[in-house]
């Protein structure tokens, strides 16, 4: 219990102090995870929409696979990205190992299946509603995809949040490909892992609380956007 009280005090003082090293860690966490979520959405939303409205051979198995990939273990993703980016790997010449870029790549791979699988579900429901009308109007497939994404934007925001939550909370992938290098690739989760292993449980807990607060803030922001959109009634 002593640790917990210390942690709360420390979390508050950390957040208040404006300690440069600490802020650097928080900002890098946000940069890596928001970038990964954004890229995963760019790739995943159109794919989710195509699976939602497409009728092609292998669609059923594909959905099962994508759903299963939502449970990809981060360490496995980290390992695969590591092997590709390591000096001897096929992408080693890029020199990306132990950089934030490698971390973004790893988290994108983690988040993309979540975005694809959940957006597929959301858009399939919407498509069921729009399908007949769209066929009556001869809406081309590409236009239909974007219309579904546009009209499903509020539900898709929740999908993006789920992806961001996954990214910002994971430690296995970023620690393998990033290496938890101070001032370079240290993010909140890897810092927590480090402090825990050093025995500084209070600092680890404090960082954990800050991580939670950041996740809360991002969610609150998106929900606020959603509520204001609802008030202007494009529901």
């Amino acid at each position: 219990m002593q640790d917990l009280a210390d942690a709360v005090r420390m979390a508050l003082s950390l957040a208040m102090s404006g300690d440069a090293g600490f802020i650097e860690i928080v900002l890098l966490s946000l940069r890596v995870s928001l970038s990964a979520t954004a890229i995963a959405c760019l790739i995943g939303l159109p794919l989710g929409a195509l699976i939602a409205i497409g009728r092609f051979a292998g669609r059923g198995p594909l959905i099962v696979i994508v759903n299963a990939l939502m449970g990809l273990p981060p360490v496995v993703v980290g390992l695969v990205v590591y092997l590709n980016f390591s000096r001897a790997g096929p992408l080693g010449w890029l020199g990306l190992l132990y950089t934030p870029t490698a971390m973004i790549v790893a988290q994108t791979i983690l988040v993309a299946p979540i975005v694809i699988a959940l957006s597929r579900q959301v858009l399939e429901d919407l498509h069921a509603e729009y399908d007949e009308q769209f066929r009556s109007l001869n809406v081309p497939r590409g236009t239909a995809v974007w219309a579904l994404i546009g009209d499903g934007r509020h539900a898709l925001m929740t999908v993006a949040l789920a992806g961001f939550g996954r990214a910002v909370a994971e430690v296995g992938a970023v620690i393998i490909v990033g290496g938890n290098i101070d001032h370079l690739t240290r993010v909140m989760t890897t810092a927590i892992a480090l402090e825990t292993s050093k025995g500084d449980l209070a600092l680890a807990l404090a960082l954990g609380m800050v991580l939670l607060a950041v996740a809360l803030a991002v969610n609150a922001l998106v929900m606020g956007l959603r509520a204001s959109a609802r008030r202007s009634a494009y529901v």
């Binding site: 509603e129 007949e132 009556s136 001869n138 081309p140 546009g150 009209d151 529901v235």
Partner: peptide
């Protein structure tokens, strides 16, 4: 063109619903 028993409108403004079709 067909008008269905239950109108299926895009979750957009009234004008945008027409614009969508004109754009097609």
């Amino acid at each position: 063109a067909m008008v269905f028993q239950r109108p299926v409108l895009l979750r957009r403004s009234v004008a945008a619903n027409i614009d969508f079709v004109l754009g097609l």
